[in-house]
């Protein structure tokens, strides 16, 4: 992880701002998978995750020509944009009362091999989706996105102590929800 004040994406962002296609491709290679993963795990919906990733990078293309180093790491900025887009979509789901739980995959004890993997993945996705939003965000940012506690706390607008509490409560809930699967990963 880069230390504060050091942005590993800076040269690429400047290249994108100058319209260099090689920089565009390298930035997409480096950051698009992360943003897609973030959106997928927050929304539990592959199509919506693609939409969020697309919108995030379209905003990045607009931002790149005027990007000022030092204001934030570009990856953090991308996460903030994507996080807000995900929150908007989750809010709309709630408001329109169309918030069907993410498609639950039957986790019955019948699967084997790849099917078992899909089932486990579906169970975990569903368990994440069932968490309170802030707990889910904390776990996805820290565990899946590998963010440090200060960076994640800043992104969520909470103290590091509150972040620790969100993580702890979220993980305890997940452990209880997934208790029957723990044996599978030992």
């Amino acid at each position: 992880m880069a230390s504060e004040g050091e942005d590993p994406d800076l040269a690429l962002v400047e290249g994108v701002g100058r319209g260099e296609q090689a920089a565009v491709r390298r930035l997409l290679d480096a950051r698009l998978p992360r943003i897609l993963a973030l959106a997928r795990r927050l929304l539990a919906d592959p199509d919506e995750a693609q939409d969020v990733a697309q919108e995030t990078f379209l905003r990045a293309w607009k931002q790149a020509p005027s990007w000022r180093p030092g204001q934030a790491r570009f990856d953090t900025w991308l996460h903030r944009v994507a996080l807000n887009l995900c929150r908007d979509r989750l809010r709309r789901r709630r408001e329109t009362a169309m918030a069907q739980p993410p498609e639950m995959i039957d986790a019955g004890p019948t699967g084997e091999g790849a099917l078992l993997g899909v089932q486990i993945g579906g169970r975990i996705e569903a368990a994440l989706a069932a968490l309170p939003e802030r707990q889910r965000e904390a776990i996805v940012l820290c565990h899946h996105q590998g963010m440090g506690n200060k960076e994640a706390a800043a992104l969520l607008g909470v103290s590091v102590e509150t972040l620790e509490s969100l993580l702890g409560r979220g993980r305890r809930t997940l452990r209880a929800a997934l208790a029957d699967l723990m044996e599978a990963v030992r």
Binding site: R41, Q50, I124, L128, H143, R171, L178, M182, A184
Partner: peptide
Amino acid sequence: DLDRLLDLAPAQ
């Protein structure tokens, strides 16, 4: 153990 389980959450 929980970490490994969480790693199986689908990405795309």
